[in-house]
Every structure is written in structure tokens, then in C-alpha cells.
Nucleic acid binder design. Structure first.
Lengths: 337, 337
DNA sequence: ATCCGCGAGTTGATCGATATTCTTGCGCCA
DNA sequence: TGGCGCAAGAATATCGATCAACTCGCGGAT
């Protein structure tokens, strides 16, 4: 900057108001004992100069930045985007500013972005839907960086996630109650692995509990970007499923497209249940019946855990929170014909 | 933190490798002249200790943080969310990390979040859809903080926005070509004021250009959250509009809901054109004809301007960029019956 | 008269890096 | 042999805050 505007420092304020910088510091932080008259003089100098304390200098000395990093894999997924917003609000409410990093699932990028966060000395990191290398997590934990994992799982770190077993069970039972017996599970290939596995297992157990037998070929991935091949045989068969549980709303909504392009109406031919409860699922034109994650609670719990970890360090054992989802019935599910 | 993990500093590396910290610094920054053998010794010490330079200390000395703040008013609006993602990617590509602040249109919050960004000494700020107090902007400019405004306008700052006149004209001409003569404009009440005004004016002029006369009562706000009252009389009238231009896709999609709840089918009874080109507008079930903003160009231009302003300061006059949108025709518009 | 305590404020060390200036040793040339 | 130049690295000031330790003056108790 050539026409640089030299920001006033604490020394400038001290000089102008005729006190020492300690006194200015005390006034700014409302600590120590400062007489009213001195305080007024300092405040006036502050206003006159437009002084704003330099967080960089404070951060260096206090070894604390009030910054938290949020690393999110798949922002295309609206649920993550909505959750990040909630986390940002919670963080702001606790005096933290968030550094958001989208990695788009690129592992290399992920490592370098996290590296940048650590150089900035963030107080903690939220790993949202962390798809990446487990070694990265191990390293963070080894360095005692406060970390909270959201919608993903590790026994060594603080975790918050929805209860997949309960959620999938809600979905399956809903379909069963509507009379469906041929039920498939459509998975999102870019979904975080531990969550995907949990939901796949939960699905099979839920079927068994309902007296139905899972078919291996009816747990299938659908990637709207790529070829539609893997899922089509299942849909085109004469005895195609009449009910589908989708791994998440993003997949479910794309699946509606695919089904209807292939002459299968939702819910007339196939009932569809999503998972997440993103905003647009509630649009009348979409009307997705879905397992709703308690988004605000998720965000709040995340910041409670992170703040606790920042305060107390790693003395206490990792905390794991499973939140209970709920089913919202809309128009994508109907009685089996 | 009680079980604190003391991060290694440049001094620790210097001690371990038996050199001065200047040399370590030179090795880390690949500057100065360091012999290969010394370099190797230092690198080994770095690896052994897990040393990572402290950006806080560097920032303090260099008066540069490589942080940019992004202040966004209305993240409920998917377009903003998608644009923030693009900006984040562009920033990361240029070595900046972004601090994202959602203000939700709360002016008080906005000022305090910007204050926090300035305390963190961000290198620059992106104001996206800045709804807030013009005094805040004036202050930023007075303090010579590099600022770029996106999707909003000020003659004193660098601005990037879509060309509202061209966009609205595309929408109106499309409806006119389909035979519509009774065309309304539905505005988003939380939309940033300069953009709203620009679109309202553009709408009226586009009508005139098409030989139609604007009706004042047909430029009306719709807030899905509040009462639906203000817009219903227009829709219930016998000579209700047969074409609607919505201020943005968010409003358009909520408007579909409202129309269909009131027995007006889209596009059968009313054709609807949106503005923005958010992802879900392309879903078959939505099929919104819309004026698409060049999202990536918008994000790229934003960071080009911001980077330039950070480098060169305020020697050069503000730059204003108007980007040309395009129309994507889908199924929400049809020939007038 | 002496001492204590306290309010009000100052001094100075410190955080962890960068960058400028300074030192040292060595080879080379006149 | 003396002096010069340069490569390699060391010393040190600096950024802008915080905080513990210290000073100073004054009023009241003994």
C-alpha cells in the first residue's frame, strides 16, 4: 500500500492522552483501577484517533486467537452448508470468529488448508463430514489441537452426530407401516465413510427387525454426476423396490429426478424417504419425507464441546454425542399400491 | 489448557540444529544464502519437532495476515451461499484464508462483526449483498481498508455485480415473446436496496420498451415469512398478471408455493421467471426459468479487485464491473393461453 | 512520628517471528 | 603479504499488545 494509512497503536493513544500504554490497555480491557477522569481522557483519545486494538499482537502474547477453523468436505450438500451457518452463529455468540475451508473432498487440499489453519493458530477446529485422511486427524490429536468432529466418527476425538440407527429405523418403519416390503437403500458415494457404513448397517438391521430380508444388490450407490448405470438395473426390474431410503436429502432429491426420468413416479410407483431435513425438502413441489437432523442442537453441541476442549485441554476423555432425529412425513411417501 | 502441548518455536529449531534463528527463518522462507548441509540439518530439526511457523508473529511484524473477511447479509438465499463458496475457493487459490461472517441482515451485528474483522487485521473485506449502514462502508473507506462490494453498489468503492438492466430485460422480453402482456414484478423485501431499486427501475423501462405500460400496484414485495397479504389481491383479481418476474430465485421458488396454494398453476396460469440461477432452480420438479448470474466470474473478479486493492492501496480510482447474465429457459414459463 | 495499606499509574519483560546490519573466515588476485 | 570481495551465518531491533512487579503519594491508625 503506497497511500498507507498508518493505524494508530496503543502508544499513539498513550501519547495523546498523556498516560502510559498500560493504562490505555487497562481502559480498553476494563481491568485494573483507573480513575474516571483518566478513563475519560483515554476514551477521548481513542475516539479521536479511531484506535482499534491489534488482535494480532494480543494473539501472539496470549497464545489465543479466538479463531476457530471449520473444515467441510462437501458444501454442495445443502445440509453441510446450513450446518456451517449454524456453527458460525454459535461461534460468534461465544466470541469466536470462524475460518471456513471448503475442501471439496480433495485430500491434498484438505491437508494444506488445515496446515494454514494451524499456522494461523486457530484455537480449535471443527471437522464437518470429514472425508479425509485419518492420519491428519491423528496428527491433530497428537498435537493436542482441540478438535470436534461433526457427522463423522472417531473414538479418540469429541464427536457429535445424529443417531444413524434411530434415523434409519424411523425411515424403514415408516415405509413398512405404509405396506412396503421391497425396500432399497441408496447411498451417496461421496458421503463420509463411517457415517455411510453406520447407515448401511442400520438399514439392514432395521429390515430384519421388520421381518424383511435385505437384498445385497438393493444397497446401491447413486452419483448424479456420473453414469447412472449402477442403479438402473434395480429400478428397471419387474420387482423393483417400492420404497427407497436415501442416504441423505441431496441424494434423495436427485433420485426423484432419476426416477421420474425413467417413468417411475414418486410416490405413486416408489415411495422415497430422505435423511437430513434440508430446507428445500419442505417445498411443496419436492415434498420429501425425511429424517430431520436437529440442526441447531448439532451446532450448539459442537461449540459447547469445542469451547470446553479449548478451555480444559485434553485432560478429559473424548465426549461422544448422538442426537436423536425425527421423521417428517410429506408427500414423497404413500401407501403401497 | 492444562496438559498444554507447547508448540515448538523458531528458537527451539535453532537450538536443536545448532544455528541462529535467522538461519532457520531463511531456510523456512527459502531466502538468503544457506549452505545445503545447514539447510538439511535445519529441515531435520523442523521435522523432528513438528515445527510450524507462527503466523500470528509473522502477521504482527509484516502487518499482513493473508486473511480476508467476507460479510454476507442473507445466507438463507442460496445464491449468496453458493457465491461465498466460490469466493472462498478463489481466495484460497491466491493464498488467502477467508473469515466468513453471516449477519442475517442485523445491522447492529454487522457493525460488530466488521469490527472483529478489523481487529483481526484482515487484509481486505468482501461485502456481499451488503444491506447495512452506509456509514459503515464510509468508515471502511476512510480507514483505507481494501473493500470490494459484490451484488451491491457504491460509487466510492470497487464493485462487482450482474447487470440488472440486461438481466431484467432478458426476463421481460422472454415473457413478452411468449405473448404475455400483464406482467408483474415481485420483489424480495430483504434484498439489498441499491440492487432492488435498480431492478425495479429496469423492470419498468423494459415494459415500456416492449410497448407495455407498468402498473404501480404490480410491483410488489413478497416475504414468505410474513403475512401473504400484500401480494394476494393482485393474484386474486380477475385480470391478474399472467407473467411474473421475481427479484431472485429464492423469492421465485417461494412464489411457486404461494401461487399453487392459491389455485394458480405455474406455468399454466402464470409464467414465472427468476433471477440468480441457483442450483435447485434446475431440478425438474422446480424447472425455474431464470436469469443466470455468472457465479464463477463474479467470484474471480471479486478476488482480482480485492487483491489489486490490497497490493496497490487506494491510489487508483474505484473499479466497477457489470457482468452480463444469461437466460435459461425451463418449464416455469409457457405461451400465454 | 512512623508505618501500613491502598488507589492510581508506570516500567519493563515477553510473545515468535522477520529483516537489516554486522561479523567471520576463506579464496583469490595483485 | 596485504587487501578485497563474497558466501554463510549471527546479532539485534522491531511489530503492538498484556501483565506482573514496582513506584508514588496520601490518609488513617497506632
Amino acid at each position: 500500500m503506497t497511500s498507507a494509512f498508518k493505524r494508530p497503536t496503543i502508544n499513539d493513544v498513550a501519547a495523546l492522552s498523556g498516560v502510559s500504554k498500560s493504562t490505555v490497555s487497562n481502559v480498553m480491557r476494563q481491568s485494573g483501577t483507573v480513575s474516571d477522569s483518566t478513563r475519560a481522557r483515554v476514551m477521548e483519545a481513542v475516539a479521536q484517533l479511531g484506535y482499534r486494538p491489534n488482535a494480532t499482537a494480543r494473539n501472539l502474547l496470549l497464545r489465543r486467537t479466538n479463531l476457530v477453523g471449520v473444515v467441510v468436505g462437501d458444501v454442495a450438500n445443502a445440509f453441510d452448508a446450513e450446518l456451517v451457518t449454524g456453527i458460525e452463529r454459535q461461534a460468534a455468540g461465544r466470541g469466536y470468529t470462524t475460518l471456513v475451508c471448503n475442501t471439496g473432498g480433495d485430500t491434498r487440499l484438505e491437508a494444506s488448508r488445515i496446515e494454514a489453519l494451524l499456522e494461523q493458530r486457530v484455537d480449535g477446529i471443527v471437522l464437518l463430514d470429514f472425508t479425509g485422511d485419518r492420519a491428519v486427524l491423528a496428527q491433530l490429536l497428537a498435537e493436542r489441537v482441540p478438535v470436534v468432529m461433526v457427522s463423522c466418527w472417531s473414538e479418540y476425538a469429541d464427536c457429535v452426530a445424529v443417531d444413524d440407527v434411530v434415523g434409519i429405523d424411523l425411515a424403514v418403519r415408516h415405509l413398512v407401516e405404509l405396506g412396503h416390503e421391497r425396500i432399497a437403500h441408496v447411498v451417496d458415494p461421496v458421503m463420509e465413510a463411517t457415517t455411510r457404513r453406520a447407515r448401511v448397517e442400520a438399514f439392514e438391521r432395521a429390515l430384519l427387525r421388520a421381518g424383511l430380508s435385505p437384498r445385497a444388490e438393493w444397497t446401491v450407490a447413486y452419483d448424479p454426476g456420473n453414469a447412472e448405470a449402477p442403479i438402473l438395473p434395480m429400478l428397471r426390474a419387474a420387482d423393483h423396490p417400492t420404497g427407497i431410503v436415501a442416504a441423505n436429502d441431496y441424494t434423495a432429491i436427485r433420485l426423484i429426478e432419476l426416477l421420474e426420468r425413467n417413468g417411475l413416479a414418486v410416490p405413486h410407483d416408489i415411495s422415497l424417504v430422505g435423511f437430513d431435513g434440508i430446507d428445500i425438502a419442505g417445498l411443496a413441489r419436492i415434498g420429501l419425507t425425511t429424517v430431520v437432523q436437529p440442526r441447531d442442537t448439532l451446532a450448539r453441541t459442537t461449540l459447547e464441546l469445542l469451547a470446553a476442549r479449548i478451555e480444559t485441554g485434553y485432560d478429559e476423555a473424548p465426549q461422544q454425542h448422538r442426537l436423536i432425529p425425527s421423521l417428517v412425513v410429506r408427500t414423497s411417501t404413500a401407501l403401497r399400491r
